[in-house]
Write a protein that binds this DNA or RNA. Structure first.
Lengths: 203, 203
DNA sequence: AGATATTTATGCGAAACGGTACAAAATCAA
DNA sequence: TTGATTTTGTACCGTTTCGCATAAATATCT
């Protein structure tokens, strides 16, 4: 027991404990970034939503770009988990895909602000000025495609197009849906679109 | 000749003539909006790029949002013209589609800033705060799909999926490509993606 | 020429921006 | 209790932002 009694839970750090939970803060700033985008979201709004003062936010997450990237990663991880939960199910792949798209559209068109997909809807515009944001968004989208691919592998579709090709197509449909939702296309139209695409992907 | 000699050219307006050409200004501010997005593009940058002073820009186009929308419409019209020129050609539809995507990718990945598609890449994020921008972007995307549809009608593909369905799929592929280009996906990968999607669309 | 109309140019001014310095508060180690 | 360490709150700095007020410049119409 030389190196400190780590006990079960890791020893509490030295100084004053934090008055917030990281994941909660990330989910609150997510709502601000969703509504305004990265550039138009001010630190005042972000701090107010997070319930933190500015120096606390900075000490915990770094500057605005790093905070945004942390939020993106958080959203991405939770999304992939949710996708895997559905895509590993026992139903035929067409049905699993339908549930993925339906769930996505529900989120994308949630009133009152039809926010669309936060990744393609808010990260894309910043990618030219903030390459790290573009790279992060790309990683997350690649993660989505990998999740789709796992779903296609677990299916009895013909081997061609390959699961990877089908996955990249499913991802493109998802991307386009997330964009069009934010642009104001109503949910019914989005659902009709994804429903008509599924048989094409699974041909 | 009562109502004034309108001659051929309409009579010049009364006061001092403008020192700029509307389409040129729109194409110069387009470059700024492409690089920075709507929110992060400052009026100083826009004026400098346009070669106009601030009050001139305001008198000619209104505020920043109206200027941006005028620019979007300008880009949209020229794009549809270019698409129709290709899509009405004599080649098989697969080949016409390939040329459309190749041309788009060339623009989307142009160095040094891989700007992607200005419509889905910069308008989308603003749609929640500026509904007029979202509506305009949607109109333009619908115009793209109509152009695709005209191309599919002029082809000897099977009647199902319908030309409209094929067009919405082709549009989704275009959208996803424009997004991923801005996010940093290299041109070679984008070309491989669209090339693999064409046979699926034209099945 | 003189009056009228429109566009240019300079520059301002109030507000909002991102980021940080500094001291008070809260906890742990000894 | 005393000192070390981390978080919190207030207040501020310099810069940049958008939009406009005002006056000079350039054209047509009478």
């Amino acid at each position: 027991m030389r190196n400190g009694t780590k006990s079960k839970k890791e020893a509490r750090p030295r100084g004053r404990p934090r008055g917030f939970i990281t994941s909660e803060v990330l989910e609150r700033v997510r709502d601000v970034f969703l509504a305004k985008g990265f550039a138009a979201a001010s630190l005042d709004e972000l701090c107010a939503a997070a319930g933190l003062n500015r120096p606390s936010l900075y000490a915990a997450f770094g500057d605005k770009e790093q905070l945004y990237i942390s939020m993106l990663r958080h959203v991405g991880e939770k999304s992939v988990e949710a996708m895997d939960a559905v895509l590993s199910g026992p139903e035929p792949i067409e049905q699993r895909l339908g549930r993925i798209y339906k769930g996505a559209i529900d989120i994308y068109t949630k009133p009152p602000n039809r926010p669309g997909c936060i990744i393609v809807g808010t990260a894309t515009v910043e990618a030219t000025s903030h390459p790290a944001i573009g790279a992060t968004a790309n990683e997350i989208l690649a993660g989505f495609e990998k999740a789709f691919e796992r779903g296609f592998i677990k299916s009895d579709l013909k081997p061609l197009p390959s699961p990877a090709e089908r996955a990249s197509m499913a991802g493109a449909i998802m991307t386009a849906t997330g964009i069009r939702a934010r642009l104001g296309v109503p949910a019914t139209e989005l659902r009709a679109f994804t429903r008509s695409m599924i048989p094409v992907i699974c041909r």
